[in-house]
Design a protein around this nucleic acid. Structure first.
Lengths: 207, 207
DNA sequence: ACCAGTTTGTTCATACTAGCACAAGCGCGC
DNA sequence: GCGCGCTTGTGCTAGTATGAACAAACTGGT
């Protein structure tokens, strides 16, 4: 019912991609309808939470029937602005960067890797995942030309901040940082972090 | 002051590794003392939150002085049970699994990759990151012999659940899952998820 | 047409989380 | 020795998140 997007809590926004992922799996499985209860069991959360999260954006279900899988899938894609393919660049062509550049899981989830950059002269020019590694010097021009707003940082920690500065100056608005360090960026640039060791360490507390 | 570890909120435990990471960086930089305020600015959170989080486990600071970097670092390592090296296996020797197996960032943060597994006959026997790829059939014996409790799943989504079942049956207690799917495991097994696309999709909402 | 079985969207109460603000404690300089 | 500046640990308050519960609504069968 409420559509004032400015009031949606960040934590709710963070769950929408999870719902989208589950719906995508159901869609692939040929399922036509689902319910908040089924989704909840699937994801290990409460059904009330799913219904309340969705209610921030509109009324997508029907009493007695539940949700159309494809219908809700499309709604969530629109809400998350994923009804288009966003270009995405990767800075850092080491082990992780190369693996991510070769990852085929982006294409059908809203993103397309269009550029791969590294400062190591021995890597520049190499072909990885169908892309040619370019020098970091090319980043500003490339970002401007391709209207790219998403970037992933996969360089060693000591270079991550300076890469982030380059990306911000180039106009990047969303950074996914694989380096185990906190980045300093302006408020209008979004940053998310991935550090597998953090997750392992957290679980180790309970062992 | 409170030491009843059973009452520490999960969200607090999740922040401890972040503090540990920052302290490690400060230690490398030769810094001897720090304060909750400095840590807070470094990490972009409030100083009160840091002090309160730490207060769940004891009193580690001194008024007027702050915290000894090395002292707090060691305390957190003990709290998280990271004052030892935990063996860790990786199932899935594809792009991501290979990259993670070659990642050198585990060794000084409490973990050591001791095994790499895959079901693809063309990969078994290959050398990746100093490890020989073994068949998934070897997992139960290997886990038992090496007393391993941590595992990472880097196989395609459609195989992730069956790999998880094998791991659980083998005695693994903590799973870090890279496959974009929710796993079903017993309550005494901990699971954490890494899916870069989830982070990208969340940020795209705000663009 | 009506009833039984489902499921939604929302209300309400409870639980949790975050940060302000302050007393107590420590160190340094005079 | 004393006072000033700084920092911790914690009580308290305000804000946020969660889940139980229910009225309204839809479907299918009789």
């Amino acid at each position: 019912m409420a559509l004032d997007q400015h009031e949606v809590p960040d934590i709710v926004v963070g769950r929408l991609p999870v719902y989208l992922r589950a719906l995508s799996a159901m869609k692939s499985g040929g399922k036509q309808y689902t319910s908040s209860h089924e989704l909840a069991e699937w994801l290990g959360i409460s059904s009330a939470q799913i219904r309340k999260d969705l209610s921030h954006f509109g009324e997508f279900g029907k009493q007695g029937t539940g949700y159309s899988v494809i219908g809700l899938y499309d709604e969530l894609r629109q809400i998350l602005h994923l009804d288009q393919d966003w270009p995405l660049i990767i800075v850092g062509a080491g082990n992780i960067g190369s693996a991510v550049a070769s990852y085929t899981g982006f294409s059908h989830r809203g993103f397309r890797v269009v550029g791969l950059f590294d400062n190591d002269p021995t890597k520049i020019g190499a072909q990885i995942g169908g892309l040619t590694v370019q020098s970091n010097n090319e980043i500003p021009q490339f970002v401007a030309d391709s209207h790219t707003q998403h970037a992933m940082i996969t360089v060693p920690a000591q270079y991550a901040q300076q890469v982030a500065d380059i990306l911000v100056a180039s106009g990047i608005k969303a950074i996914l940082n694989y380096a185990p360090i906190n980045l300093n960026v302006p408020h209008n640039v979004h940053v998310e972090y991935i550090d597998p060791v953090l997750h392992l360490q957290k679980m180790t507390y309970y062992l």
